[in-house]
């Protein structure tokens, strides 16, 4: 049996704006195993993004524990969390994912650059991934020269180019039409099955939900259904 990538125990997160308190996560217990393709679904404000951010060490929970590959990460200092994200996680966001002043190839290269991979090796690996994902033709384009679907494909390429253990994707298809949505999800599924990379994505798109291997439904910061 594959071990867990993420283990969340009693995770709570509250956002305060003035006197108002919003419980974004309200006692989440969750385990995600290696190689899973998980869709976190639910209406806006249900806590999907916060859950992904807490899993990725972007936000710290107010209570509870977050474990990543057998290591507790919610107490790690920011510097170590940055290293962890850089070495073991890939991220895809809903929009404005790419650095606008870098080409698609340079965007994908950037993660490897931060890891200190030599330039020649970086370019080789990026070309390999672009070729595998069928987006070689986008290599020299700047984000402003690409459609939303193309940008998300490049963002996925950037997320997986460093062979991370997990890719966290926050509504990666929210701004895409159905054709592009299917293409992007299929791409992630292919990577998941080919390389065994774990995918956790938040969505409320039925096209994504029906393709996911596991679905977690959220409402008001709680998990209401696991499938």
């Amino acid at each position: 049996m594959k071990g867990p990538v993420f283990t969340l125990k009693g995770v709570r997160k509250v956002f305060r704006t003035g006197d108002e308190e919003v419980k974004a996560l309200d006692g989440i217990d969750l385990e995600i195993r290696r190689g899973e393709f998980v869709a976190v679904v639910g209406p806006s404000g249900s806590g999907k993004t916060t859950l992904l951010n807490v899993m990725g060490g972007i936000e710290r929970p107010d209570a509870g524990e977050v474990w990543f590959m057998g290591r507790r990460i919610d107490t790690l200092p920011e510097r170590k969390l940055s290293d962890l994200r850089l070495q073991s996680m890939g991220f895809v966001f809903q929009s404005h994912n790419l650095i606008p002043t870098l080409t698609a190839e340079e965007n994908a290269e950037f993660v490897l650059f931060l890891r200190g991979v030599p330039a020649k090796e970086r370019r080789r690996r990026v070309r390999e991934v672009f070729s595998a994902l069928g987006i070689e033709n986008l290599a020299g384009r700047f984000p402003s020269e690409m459609s939303g679907g193309q940008q998300q494909r490049v963002a996925i390429a950037r997320a997986v180019v460093g062979n991370p253990a997990v890719v966290l994707a926050d509504e990666p298809t929210a701004n895409l039409d159905s054709e592009n949505t299917v293409a992007v999800v299929d791409l992630m599924l292919r990577i998941n099955s080919d390389s065994g990379t774990t995918f956790v994505l938040s969505t409320h798109d039925p096209l994504v939900i029906e393709r996911a291997k596991r679905v977690i439904r959220m409402r008001d910061g709680r998990i209401t259904l696991r499938r």
């Binding site: 920011e78 940055s82 850089l86 650095i99």
Partner: peptide, 14 residues
């Protein structure tokens, strides 16, 4: 600001 957030999420340090 958001762009820097994305970069930091990817592992870029302050």
């Amino acid at each position: 600001t958001r762009e820097f957030g994305v970069m930091r999420a990817m592992g870029m340090k302050p």
